[in-house]
């Protein structure tokens, strides 16, 4: 799964209200959660979304039964938070109006990652991230996102089709600039 775990003893202390223990969990999971959030909500919103998710996690720590699965549980909360944010933005902020340069993209970059991701539906971004970046299986992704494995495959197929189309578009634009 490629996601480092968190010591159950620390999780137990956090459940008992120890904020230092929770801070240790935040430190351990921060980088991984921000990577996931970047793919789903983009660079500008990622860190805020993860902080929101961590506050939610703190308030729901008593619901966590399996201390060993704290990392997966945090991923689920972060993903849900990011999808909620992204759905709103995706609906109200069309691709043409996406903020260019909100990512530190350099003019010489031929692949504008954030712009490509914005061309996908939020769930497609999440599925693609968990597949390509985290190397998770369809079953693991389905469990994490509370959808079926068939839906996972469908989201991934449509995501790849959209990416190919957007990539070709970007290459045509780049070629047009070059000539």
């Amino acid at each position: 799964m490629g996601m480092s775990g968190v010591e159950p003893a620390i999780v137990q202390r956090a459940r008992e209200g120890d904020r230092d223990a929770f801070a240790a969990i935040v430190q351990a999971r921060w980088g991984s959660l921000v990577r996931l959030a970047r793919s789903v909500v983009g660079d500008g919103d990622a860190e805020d979304a993860v902080q929101d998710a961590l506050v939610v996690a703190w308030n729901q720590l008593s619901k966590l039964r399996d201390l060993e699965s704290c990392a997966a549980w945090l991923n689920r909360i972060a993903l849900r938070t990011c999808l909620r944010r992204a759905r709103w933005r995706w609906r109200w902020l069309p691709l043409e109006e996406a903020p260019e340069g909100s990512v530190e993209s350099r003019p010489e970059d031929t692949i504008d990652i954030q712009r490509m991701l914005l061309g996908l539906a939020p769930r497609q971004r999440a599925v693609l991230h968990l597949t390509v970046i985290e190397g998770m299986t369809d079953r693991e992704i389905a469990d994490l996102m509370s959808i079926t494995a068939a839906s996972v495959r469908s989201h991934r197929r449509r995501a790849r089709q959209s990416l190919e189309r957007i990539h070709q578009q970007q290459q045509r634009v780049a070629a047009g600039r070059g000539s």
Partner: peptide
């Protein structure tokens, strides 16, 4: 595209883990 994506994701977050823990 996947390689570029990984490079893009690997950039360090603006907040360090310690700063993030403090903010949370």
């Amino acid at each position: 595209w996947e390689d570029a994506w990984r490079v893009w994701l690997d950039r360090p977050p603006r907040k360090s883990p310690e700063q993030a823990a403090r903010a949370v």
